[in-house]
Design a protein around this nucleic acid. Sequence first.
RNA 1: GGUCCCUUCGUCUAACGGUUAGGACAGGAGAUUCUCAGUCUCUAAAUAGCGGUUCGAUUCCGCUAGGGACUACCA
Length: 492
Amino acid sequence: MEVRVRYAPSPTGLQHIGGIRTALFNYFFARSSGGKFILRVEDTDRERYSDESLEDLYNTLSWLGIEWDEGPVVGGPYGPYIQSERFDLYKKYAEQLVAEGKAYYCYCSPERLEALRKEQAESKSEYQGYDRHCANLTAEERAELEAQGIKPVIRLRVPTEGKTTFHDILMGDITRRNRDISPDPIILKSDGFPTYHLANVIDDHLMHITHIMRAQEWIPSGPLHVLLYNAFGWEVPLYCHLPMVMGKDGQKLSKRHGSTAVRDFRAKGYLPEAIINYVTLVGWSLDGSTEFFSKEELEKCFRLENIHKSPAVFDYKKLDWFNGQYIRATADDKLAGLIVPYLQDAGFVHDPLSEDEEKLVSKLVPSVKERMKVLSDVVPLTAFIFRDEPVTDKNVYIGKGADLDKTAEALRKGMSILLDGVKAGRSQEDIENDLASLASELGLKVGGVFQPIRVAITNSTVSLPLFDSIDMIGIDETERRLERGLKILEEN
RNA sequence: GGUCCCUUCGUCUAACGGUUAGGACAGGAGAUUCUCAGUCUCUAAAUAGCGGUUCGAUUCCGCUAGGGACUACCA
């Protein structure tokens, strides 16, 4: 039997880490087992739907390089793959259940339901949920309510006796007493749209889905779905509930833990390879020691048996580490292309790049590459090249164990060694040695000499290596900044 | 409140019922005769508790504790 799995998000928000982790697991399982990966858009919630979310779904998947075999845009034999385009279908099936007595119309107002919920909560009643008020209306009663113009919903009759069991590949059998299933859930809303449960079950069946891989937060609705499959007389697919992705505090990962939208990670300069690699490792591992996986490798070695049962905390620091690793593994010319947009956004270079800018960018890549965790780090790292904002606080120039006078002297003597050396084409090593000698002559640590030079040239105490920096702004600009630095130190 | 799920270093995880309980991130120390970073080396750090089963439990079973999810005309 061919494996057919699906990712079925609802376009009610941006694609987030948890969602794409589910997408990735489905995708890799399909690929590694020679099956099909299907994308289905569950847009039955008209209130929360947004075009932006749908666009974000497509953008995110394509950025990650996750291609679907069937779904929107590409089509497939069981389409359409957007639920709002299957509107009539759900109603038909829901009415079929009503006709068979397995479901019924309910005319209760939202107000009544609200009051009921409140009452149950306050009385701490063991019974939660709908009281089956409309479960046995007569034809006359219904006709009267219809005449009042009330649009009914359709509820599924949940048995009060017995148990319902479903099998989960990871969890084993999960059994629940039917009386514990939230009674008589709505399957068709008054606006004619199905709720998640109905649409999901119908589509998974019609699309021949074999394995349902979704987050563990869905476990409680598993028995309900099985009831639905049984009501229709359909075969129940295999379940595989994925461990949840949590925040630092052990709660379901959400915005308050930091960025969760993949779009935001992309904007900050995370590489798709790093996201895929790390996110897949949340709740899955091959052998406990292999850390790096390319998408292609995962498409081969992903196994359901290696998925974990327990929830996992999403570690932003580890993602940073992965991203840094991937940046360092990126070829210089490719990396240059990746950082250009950040330099343009910062207003450092033109769009398109001038020839000089092009050269400058490829020149700065090697030294910046070792220092980036995310692509946007390039901006603060290279700001001194494009913006000259001198440090006017003298204290910043003073290295450890030095004072103002010594620092000024170190800068005065140091800059001439440096400038003369560079102009004369002496080796970096020789110049460095001379600067080190100067430091000991002055009774300073090497930093005592390098610090004022660094601050004068790069306007910062932390910077790219000195000689790289000089190379990037040019010797004339270097001289200008050094002289200005000296002036700042010698003022008053 | 009810139902269900989960439990190895701070975090992600490895370990046919037999290992000095391994790796990685983060942390700490050191090296790299310029800062930061990077790289390399070293280091600290865990089987939630209690009972079984067993010659032997991280591993199997039970209980307790803790955590989480769900309990919508949202998915």
